[in-house]
Amino acid sequence: MPATPLNTRLNIRYPLIQAPLAGAQGSALALAVSRAGGLGSLPAAALPPARLREEMQAMRGSGLPWNANFFCHAAPQPDAPRQAAWHALLKPYFDELGLDAAHIPSGPGRQPFDDEAAALVAEFRPPVVSFHFGLPAPQALERIKRAGAFVLSSATTVEEALWLQAHGADAIIAQGLEAGGHRGHFLSDDLTRQAGLFALLPQVVAAVRVPVIAAGGIATAAGVRAALALGAAGVQAGTAYLCADEAATSPLYRAALLAAAASGQAHTALTTLMTGRPARGLPNRLTRELGPLNPAAPAFPLAAPAAAWLRAAAEKQGRADFSFFWCGENASACRSAPAAHITQALAEGFAAAR
């Protein structure tokens, strides 16, 4: 792989970033990808403080390049009537599983970037820090850059890419609509404004001066080649790693993905039913019976505690009826293999593009 501004700056062999997989990985997967020549990522927003500290220690102790990913959403104001309506909508499912809807546990959901997170970045000094849903406040961003971090953030439109460039992002992740997990949108929640990767990518490349990283539906070397042909300086892949040996994907999650791969096709849907914000994954009973983008779901992340409680109770019975298995539209490319093998297979796309 010849040297490029991106892999030279990030000290990686391939300009290939493993997308942070909240709920499906820890440091083991990130380290395996970094050892194989890519950039492993840690989903910091989904980890409780004590666990995050342990995982960041493991990453720093490796001496390898790595990325810490955080969310930049604004915490919503509690809305008691909407929350009550949400719980009422889910009550028949709670009753079916023998759960008392009066005792839904509280949960932190996804944590926005705050002073505590900024202090961890200053302490552990990840070489790369990436964000979803925009960027932190200027003072916090400056603190991150003083720690030596290269800053990435996701854009789902050209307008968001220009905003990120103007507000200090060192590179931009162009996230196509086919990507798994949460949409990275932050200027508008209108999904009609978001395009598939290969429509979005060349527009973003033409609009900005900083490097652009392609994300969404890239799970093969052919996808890597196509992204590079459209001007990407690198690629980000997440779904391709969900069944890696080092991933923490649950048995039910892994089985669902491998079944989709065996069939040669994977039906995915964007839904607000898990967290309150559109995210792509495999459909389930809730998306079929309530509609995937049901407006009753409270604002992100206030929908999560009730939905997660329902999911956990069903999974204890071996049922995936209410599970949300995040993945992109190219989930049929998932396979069980060491992360190093998956990284090398994707990296063939760089070699072919020389």
Score class of each variant (00 low, 15 high):
P2Y: 07
A3G: 12
T4K: 08
P5Y: 03
P5D: 08
N7A: 01
T8C: 12
R9V: 12
Y14V: 10
L16P: 11
Q18D: 08
Q18N: 13
P20E: 01
A22M: 04
A24R: 01
A28K: 14
L29S: 01
A30D: 06
L31D: 03
S34Q: 07
S34G: 07
L39E: 01
G40E: 01
A44Y: 10
L47A: 12
L52F: 09
R53D: 09
E54T: 15
E55K: 03
M56L: 15
Q57S: 14
M59L: 15
G63L: 13
W66D: 04
N67E: 03
F70Q: 05
F70L: 07
P78I: 06
D79G: 10
P81G: 01
P81Q: 01
Q83D: 14
A84E: 15
A88F: 05
L89C: 14
F94W: 02
D95C: 06
E96D: 11
L97N: 04
L97M: 07
G98A: 06
L99S: 10
L99R: 09
D100S: 08
H103N: 13
F113K: 00
F113D: 02
E116A: 15
V121R: 05
P126N: 00
F133H: 14
P136F: 00
P136V: 03
A137P: 10
P138G: 08
E142M: 07
R143Y: 05
K145N: 03
L152A: 08
S153D: 00
T157N: 12
E159A: 15
L162N: 04
W163E: 04
I172T: 07
I172Q: 04
L177W: 04
E178Y: 11
E178G: 07
A179W: 05
G180V: 08
S188W: 07
R193I: 10
Q194G: 08
L201H: 13
P202G: 00
A206P: 15
V208S: 06
R209H: 14
P211H: 00
V212C: 09
G216K: 10
G217I: 11
A219M: 15
A222Y: 12
V224I: 12
V224P: 06
A233S: 14
A240T: 04
L242Y: 04
T249N: 01
Y253L: 03
A255R: 13
L257R: 09
A259V: 02
A262L: 02
A262T: 06
A266Y: 07
H267F: 05
L270P: 13
T272M: 05
L273Y: 06
G276Y: 02
R277L: 13
R277W: 15
P283G: 05
N284F: 08
T287Y: 04
R288F: 09
R288D: 00
R288G: 02
G291P: 13
G291W: 12
G291I: 11
P292S: 09
N294E: 01
P298A: 00
A299T: 07
A304C: 14
W309H: 11
L310K: 02
R311A: 09
A314T: 00
Q317L: 15
R319H: 12
S323I: 10
F324G: 07
F325D: 00
G328E: 05
A333S: 13
A333I: 11
A340P: 10
T343A: 04
A345I: 14
L346W: 09
L346G: 03
F350V: 00
F350W: 05
